[in-house]
Amino acid sequence: MGWIGETVDSIKSIQIRQVLTQAVSLGMIVTSALIIWKALMCITGSESPVVVVLSGSMEPGFKRGDILFLHMSNDPIRAGEIVVFNVDGREIPIVHRVIKVHERQDTGEVDILTKGDNNYGDDRLLYAHGQLWLQRHHIMGRAVGFLPYVGWVTIIMTEKPIIKYILIGALGLLVITSKD
């Protein structure tokens, strides 16, 4: 009867090892994704190096679902650049074009006015109540590059959370059941 006990033990030990390797490989995937994201943050100097366009206010240049690569350098902001900015009291950052710039002689501070290419008027209506200009600290980055459609994945996942859970579940199942 000794060999039965041995096999049971070996099966048990194999399963523990398998589970461990799978956990480690899953951890590797998650950490490498995190490393890439943080490295991008360091290189571009922007809190969020990649953003998804959520509205049609920059059409036909940027459509909903396109992704933009941001860069935040110390270069001064100039008219015509497409910047991503946060307005106090609004959660979602906005991607619009700079149409007016006033840069101070003494301090180098800037007053910026933006407008969406597809909007009729400028952005003063979107700013906080009584705010006429954006300052440097509102700006999260300027758009330097562009990739179409890829952002739809995120839009679908945030708007239809069920799909996200199905996807995560399926991937988890795949990881657990995979043999090697």
């Binding site: 008219a79 074009r97 149409i99 006033h102 840069e103 101070r104 180098g108």
Partner: peptide
Amino acid sequence: QVFVFLAAEYETPKNSLNQISLWDAI
């Protein structure tokens, strides 16, 4: 697309640069 705009640019005692978009087109 090409986004083209015409800006007036000038310097004042207060501001080292003023850029004001006057007209644009896509």
